[in-house]
Simulated assay, not measured.
Amino acid sequence: MSPALHRHPRFISLEGGEGAGKSTAINAIREALHARGHEVVLTREPGGTPLAERIRALILTPDEEVAAEPLSAEAELLLVFAARAQHVRQVIQPALRRGCYVLSDRFTDSSYAYQGGGRGLEPEWIADLERRAVGLLPGLTLLLDVDVAVGRARANGRDLWPDRIESEQDDFFQRVRAVFRQRAAQDPARFRLIDASQDQAGVAASVVAAIDAWLAQEHPRD
């Protein structure tokens, strides 16, 4: 039997497509948690440890820059989970044991959206890897949702040299968005959907309001 997933109340993830404004939202969340007296560990995926950051470079470097060998969808998924397994054990779990809040820019929901929805890999395979290699769910996931055309216009104005993922076509990102929204609908206790079509101040206010509501709830002790 595969291991069960443990949902941790001090683990918060931020998800969304390209150009959704995650950087602004993460800074607002971190400041809100600090203001309320909580120690926060801010991290990201893929990455978060020296080894995982090296794997991130393999995943995101455009194929034409790493010889004539495109990265397969299956290899991409396994690399993401290799980085995540290291990240969970070296950064996330130790921080949670210390009593910190952990705020991660992306987590396993991105694998369902990008490698599952975008690349077409089976969600059952992703779920098995999640149970065996990760074993952890955020207690709260904030999904920044924005129309693909709007998000891509923002990203194109920001990124002069797009990475492998950012270089995909609109239909790829439409599938990514659909899976994110589907997962949010299936797990409303964990997800909070944030309208990321707002300006930066509006998105920041929305995520802080979601954090305040989350902190006001009673969470079980570990």
Score class of each variant (00 low, 15 high):
24 T>D: 08
6 H>W: 06
146 V>P: 00
218 E>N: 13
177 R>G: 02
191 F>M: 05
156 N>I: 09
84 R>G: 06
47 G>Y: 09
158 R>L: 04
176 V>G: 00
173 F>N: 03
103 L>F: 08
45 E>N: 15
58 L>Q: 11
125 W>D: 00
169 Q>W: 07
93 Q>C: 07
186 Q>N: 12
123 P>L: 02
119 R>I: 01
177 R>L: 03
152 R>L: 15
213 A>T: 11
203 V>I: 15
108 T>K: 04
21 G>Y: 08
205 A>F: 12
181 R>L: 14
136 L>S: 08
201 A>N: 14
4 A>V: 06
153 A>D: 11
161 W>C: 00
54 R>Q: 15
148 V>N: 07
110 S>W: 00
162 P>D: 12
155 A>S: 14
94 P>T: 05
213 A>Y: 05
119 R>A: 07
52 A>V: 08
203 V>R: 07
115 Q>G: 03
40 V>H: 08
162 P>F: 12
191 F>L: 05
38 H>Y: 14
57 A>I: 13
83 A>D: 02
186 Q>K: 10
138 P>S: 12
11 F>E: 08
91 V>K: 10
64 E>N: 15
8 H>N: 08
13 S>I: 07
69 E>R: 14
87 H>Y: 14
98 R>N: 15
35 A>M: 05
163 D>M: 01
192 R>M: 11
52 A>R: 01
141 T>I: 02
181 R>A: 10
9 P>W: 14
176 V>Q: 03
197 S>M: 09
205 A>R: 15
32 A>Y: 07
192 R>D: 02
176 V>M: 05
186 Q>A: 14
129 L>T: 04
27 N>I: 10
114 Y>A: 04
147 D>E: 07
28 A>P: 11
38 H>G: 13
115 Q>N: 01
164 R>E: 06
77 L>R: 04
82 A>M: 06
202 G>C: 13
205 A>I: 07
54 R>P: 11
119 R>P: 01
38 H>K: 13
55 I>K: 00
47 G>M: 12
156 N>L: 09
136 L>I: 10
113 A>T: 01
47 G>C: 09
6 H>E: 08
17 G>E: 03
131 R>K: 13
127 A>R: 09
35 A>I: 03
61 T>K: 11
30 R>P: 02
83 A>I: 02
179 V>W: 00
136 L>N: 07
55 I>P: 00
161 W>V: 10
175 R>Y: 01
186 Q>R: 12
216 A>G: 14
150 V>S: 05
203 V>F: 06
94 P>V: 07
68 A>D: 15
88 V>S: 02
196 A>R: 11
31 E>H: 13
80 V>K: 04
219 H>P: 08
80 V>Y: 08
49 T>G: 09
62 P>F: 09
79 L>R: 01
116 G>P: 06
216 A>N: 15
136 L>Q: 09
208 V>F: 10
